[in-house]
Design a protein around this nucleic acid. Structure first.
Lengths: 216, 216
DNA sequence: ATTGCTATTGTACATCCGTTCAACAGGACG
DNA sequence: CGTCCTGTTGAACGGATGTACAATAGCAAT
């Protein structure tokens, strides 16, 4: 018996646990990006992943288990951007360049991080994960700042300055994601550099003369 | 019949609509601060306000109506801090001083703002409100920066710098609220000033070294 | 006191939530 | 062809959620 032409519903698809887990994590990420933590429900996620309702419990134990996995998945790209595979630690200009890539400046990523930060307050395990990422971010930034200061022949408190620069980058990201009409990612980067260069001297950033005019 | 001594439940309390509305808004604020948007439910809010389940619908039409009111209530203190009653516009040092007051640096206020920012994505009306506040904030900051630059005899792009300084302040606030172990509010203020002074010159900020002012 | 107005209450209801679980389907191996 | 094994399904359940609504209780005016 041939299948009716209009409908071809493959009701049963079998994947390896790793593949299926990743499918669910990515679906969770999309759902979170679209509607925030309120939309992060079993029904929404499973519909997004084209899976049945029982699968999240089966693969992650509970919805919170999936959320923890989503958390780690959201962190990975950030961690990956912190070190170049093989070529060593990125310098400050490169670090800032990456931070202001337009793909990060989306409403989706804002929704994801608002939800995850909100969960930190409830789930202490996530706070631990957050600290791991933050420590890595801070150490990388501190090293980059130290090298930049040395190259410019300046003395700075690299450890404190690292925290400040991270806050500045995140703050610019936050404001721009909440209301994109405030500025473009390129303007945000220029604004960031405008505050850093008086302290560290000019950085060799590609496309630096974007908003500030050709010469002084 | 005299009331039993152990229990005195006044089941029926009557308030004017304005008073009751404010009670519900404040209860909503507390609930939001305690558990984020997930805890913002009819049952939680009414229990917190010691009111019955029907009251939110009666006074605000729906739960979203209450959330909009909560939104406005959360904005008011920020707006109030932007101008001194009678004495004119605050200067830059005063503005920064207020931004880093420890009462703002709490998990509760973080939860509130994470929830509200998340709602902006869904409710366009809230985006309009947000822009009103941001415009006021930005204008005040721009004026303060322009006066500070003039006093220091420096030339700056006050409009762009205002956006940057706001982002820096908010970024420091965000990082510190997510994980208070990163720094204290006083350190956050110092870090903020460390990035601003190279551009604008030293600001006459009261309590720059954590002195609360002379005795009297 | 009586009446009218309205803030308030608590139940009812339809929907949605997360989790459990028995049954099922597709390979792998003999 | 038969038999495990395991990923998958979808119904079922108890509980929570937002709203509607009829009944109730205080308060002011008469």
């Amino acid at each position: 018996m041939s299948r009716p032409p209009g409908k071809a519903p493959p009701k049963f698809r079998r994947y390896s646990p790793e593949v299926r887990a990743q499918m669910l994590v990515e679906a969770g990420l999309r759902v979170l990006g679209r509607g925030g933590i309120t939309a992060f429900t079993i029904d929404n996620i499973c519909a997004e992943a084209a899976a049945s309702r029982g699968l999240i419990t089966h693969h992650f134990g509970s919805k919170d288990g999936l959320l923890a996995a989503v958390y780690r998945a959201a962190y990975r790209p950030v961690l990956d951007s912190l070190d170049d595979a093989g070529t060593g630690a990125p310098d400050l200009g490169e670090l800032i360049e990456r931070s202001f890539r337009p793909d990060n400046f989306t409403r989706e990523s804002l929704n994801i991080w608002l939800a995850l930060w909100g969960e930190i307050a409830v789930n202490p395990q996530l706070l631990t994960e957050h600290r791991k990422l933050y420590a890595a971010y801070r150490a990388t930034m501190e090293g980059a700042i130290r090298r930049a200061a040395q190259a410019a022949g300046r003395r700075v408190e690299a450890d404190r300055l690292a925290v400040t620069v991270i806050s500045l980058v995140d703050g610019l990201w936050l404001e721009q994601c909440i209301d994109p009409s405030v500025m473009t990612p390129a303007e945000a980067k220029a604004a960031c550099l405008a505050l850093i260069t008086p302290v560290l001297g000019p950085l060799g950033v590609a496309g630096e003369g974007n908003g500030t005019g050709p010469n002084s």
